[in-house]
Design a protein around this nucleic acid. Structure first.
Lengths: 395, 395
DNA sequence: CAGAGTTAGTATCGAGACAGAAGAAACCCG
DNA sequence: CGGGTTTCTTCTGTCTCGATACTAACTCTG
């Protein structure tokens, strides 16, 4: 599409909407860090002349900087790579669980600069919005550009939460409510979509046009990037892979599926299995510790059986995703990927079993940064939505 | 991207490469049949003025025609819809099996106009190319624009067959060999990709940006359209869903997978199961006849058990594809979908079981036009490759 | 160490594609 | 029959682009 078409007029804040090429340039520099104009020209399909023209306003406004010249040993004039000044903007990302708002503040590349949280006693909109406000107050020094909020459930593009089981919400205009409360632009998105978007622009999926994200924690989440776009269907909030059949002989989940992904992989299901078998309560970390290689004490056999069954199930799931979504990269994230430290080899064997030996090797990336990716994802969505406004002057 | 960038210079035949907008217009009119300029403007994000300008050369060259005015009862000037003259070009599509070349001739919309086939005694390149030549001679009245060839295996974009197990080929430049023999432009593509492309532009997937295609026949094939593009990975020729685990208690396939998609769904596996149980040879159609509702004769119970197990397995596969590829439309094609006439209700029940009841309804389309879709798919690929050259004058 | 070769980036300018404005065409309706 | 409505075209100004020619800054070679 040529230039700024009238088709996707957000009409959000003001006039200075960037042209298509300018926005593409901003996106590319933001994602791919210090990068030469010539390289940008090749990627965007533009001539060097256009790159000079397009990058000038960004340099004038202080959004781009020219990095140090580095000649890399090759002949010719050294490149003066373009980069964004990541500190020109601040963003706040907040993940909502059933009890609390967990927030991080980030720079333009979704790098975490600080964190804060606030719990809410009940899940009324007022209580949740107030918790969000407290997190924002704790994190914002007055320079934040926008706020991203992510939660499990179905979210419309307008920021209306259509369905959020954890909060018991239906058709709540959360974006408007938070904007009312804190006075900043607010973006709301499904949590898995947000996490996937963060991996796409700022994480392990940077530069990839097709990959999948699997998260393991309280449940199992699934996000997909196809054709350089995060797939965003109406069903994305339902967690369609939450009850994917993986082991016909596995335990039951609370919805009655035998050996589904939740029954096999969620942290709660795994520790429950071991606790039941051993007759004493154990949490997830204790299960992993018991199953660790070399540990030979009462319960190790049970823990190992459960962890290895989970690893086999995960392998089956990863292979299914790679085969069906036609991706060659799968990113694993979430609090429950600790099982890989114990049973990585079992996982790899299970993947190999369900995947054609002639197929291209599967790139499995483990993002073990714990819980912050969820909040970081929310910030990433806010950043993405703001790129179109990057042309505006600094405040 | 604005205008014709130098990035994807095919440098195929000659100069008259269309601009991006012109190509998009040609594509849109070709796919969406008689369509008003105003509607085209909305879809392509162009002003009415641009539509007039862009469509003029196509009209002048006789590629487009203005359809009859139809006022549809609404007020205002009636639309003069644009349409392509489908008879201005002829294409030939050929599907290669292990023994024969099966061809169809089509118009610009891949509508079948005639068919022909030729078998080859051995799978040497010379024998296959000669069979292709005989098919072309039988179908071409001298007006064919291009030839599309599809086959099971891995095909590079250049037309080189990297791997074709059915033919025992490796790294064969089939496009060049056929071009040498018949003197027309030749496009070679994987058969499932070609079939998917045909559904995308001219079949049940017309107008959809995301859907999946499952084929059942001698094996199980899988194609995916995501973001309005046919997914085309290096692994696409391997048939990654050919041995997808579906039933832990099912029979073995010849590669030793228990209850995989081939073991459960392929025509050969189904009839083999029934034949073994009954102690007499039966072909696929006989199995379906035995399993038909109301039939109660010796063997019906066995046939029904096999067919229903296949339908359940297919349901599980369809649900997995819908959930993981995030599509809401799945097209079923191939010679082996006859089982649906017997066990459609079993299939629907199996899909429902593996899919969230709150998920958007799954649109299941059955393309039961038998074998010609395969050859038609090959023609469709040739047509798609030719759209960029549509600006050239008629011959 | 000088100059040839190479790569990066910039200023100028003309070509091309675009949308907006204005108007013509062809219908409906009262 | 004239006003309203929608479709489509013509004209024109604007904007973005790439080509060209240029400067800049480095390496390599003799």
């Amino acid at each position: 599409m040529a230039r700024t078409t009238a088709r996707e007029d957000t009409a959000d804040t003001a006039d200075p909407v960037l042209s298509d090429s300018s926005r593409d340039l901003a996106r590319e520099v933001l994602i791919h860090g210090p990068i030469a104009r010539a390289e940008l020209g090749r990627r965007l399909g533009l001539s060097p002349a256009s790159l000079s023209r397009l990058s000038k306003p960004f340099l004038d406004r202080g959004i781009f900087v020219e990095g140090p010249e580095l000649s890399e040993g090759s002949v010719g004039r050294p490149v003066k790579p373009l980069d964004v000044r990541v500190d020109t903007r601040r963003f706040i990302g907040i993940k909502l669980t059933g009890e609390a708002a967990l927030g991080v503040s980030t720079d333009l590349r979704a790098t975490e600069l600080g964190s804060a949280q606030a719990s809410f006693a009940d899940t009324s909109v007022a209580a949740v919005v107030d918790a969000v406000r407290r997190v924002v107050v704790a994190l914002d020094d007055g320079s934040a550009t926008a706020i991203g909020i992510s939660l499990g459930g179905n979210v419309l593009e307008t920021g209306v939460v259509q369905r959020a089981p954890f909060l018991g919400w239906r058709d709540i205009d959360l974006a408007a409510a938070v904007h009312e409360s804190v006075g900043l632009p607010v973006v709301v998105e499904n949590d898995v979509v947000a996490l996937t978007a963060a991996e796409h622009w700022f994480g392990a999926g940077r530069g990839l046009t097709d990959f999948a994200v699997l998260t393991i924690g309280a449940g199992v989440g699934y996000g997909l990037v196809a054709g350089d776009r995060v797939t965003r269907t109406a069903d994305v909030g339902l967690g369609l892979l939450g009850h994917y059949p993986l082991d016909a002989t596995g335990p039951l989940c609370m919805e009655g599926h035998r050996g589904c992904s939740t029954a096999m992989l969620s942290m709660g299901a795994m520790s429950a299995q071991v606790s039941t078998a051993l007759g004493r309560p154990l949490d997830y970390d204790e299960v992993l510790a018991l199953a660790a290689p070399g540990r030979e004490e009462p319960g190790s056999v049970v823990a190992r059986a459960v962890v290895e069954a989970a690893a086999r199930a995960l392998g089956r799931l990863v292979a299914a995703v790679a085969n069906i979504a036609m991706v060659s990269t799968v990113i694993l994230s979430g609090e429950g990927i600790g099982l890989l430290t114990v049973a990585r080899d079992v996982l790899d064997a299970a993947i190999a079993q369900d995947r054609d030996p002639d197929a291209s090797p599967l790139d499995l990336v483990v993002d073990d940064s714990g819980f912050t990716p969820w909040a970081r994802g929310a910030a990433a969505v806010a950043i993405q939505r703001s790129v179109a406004n990057l042309g505006r002057a600094e405040h």
